[in-house]
């Protein structure tokens, strides 16, 4: 007899559930999760190397000026290094902020607003940074 008992339907979502993120979209969240771990390992190496060279060894910030950057970016290796770091850092940070916004945005409208601002600022920063690295012309000073 117990087998005939139908479970009560699950409560339908109400306006109180607005803080729940959108339903899953394919495997996107899985790929994002994997990306955070791969880019995270790469960024540890890239960022700690960058910080060590620019801020710690050999006087750090003392020797940073236009001439110093000219010398570094005369070598394509450092342009590729900086471009990789810029791209990975913005995707890693932008995705991290996307997850945080999904957790805390109180309404769908606000979520859309915050996510749009996040995407636009990340995109513009990437464009400006990429331009800075590759449009740069080293000048002897």
């Amino acid at each position: 007899m117990a087998a005939d008992v139908t479970p009560a339907p699950l409560p339908r979502s109400t306006s109180a559930d607005r803080r729940q993120p959108k339903p899953p979209r394919g495997n996107f969240e899985l790929y994002a999760w994997v990306f955070m771990r791969i880019s995270g390992v790469l960024l540890v190496l890239l960022v700690l190397g960058h910080f060590g060279i620019m801020h710690v060894i050999d006087g750090g910030l003392d020797r940073i000026n236009f001439a110093f950057v000219s010398g570094r970016w005369a070598n394509p290796f450092w342009r590729v290094y900086d471009f990789a770091m810029l791209t990975l850092a913005l995707l890693h940070g932008g995705n991290g902020l996307r997850v945080i916004i999904d957790d805390y945005a109180r309404t769908g409208t606000r979520r859309l607003l915050y996510q749009s601002v996040n995407a636009i600022v990340v995109g513009l920063t990437w464009a400006l940074g990429t331009l800075t690295i590759f449009a740069f012309t080293p000048q002897p000073t």
Binding site: A89, L90, G93, I100, V121, T125
Partner: peptide, 30 residues
């Protein structure tokens, strides 16, 4: 810390963009 680093990165990319404005502008800000 992640959000703090991301916001720092936005500012950092903007200040480094001065490299393509002029050597003087970059050196003055640094």
């Amino acid at each position: 810390s992640g959000v703090a680093i991301l916001f720092y990165l936005f500012a950092h990319v903007v200040d480094q963009a001065l490299l393509n404005v002029s050597p003087e502008a970059y050196d003055r800000v640094i």
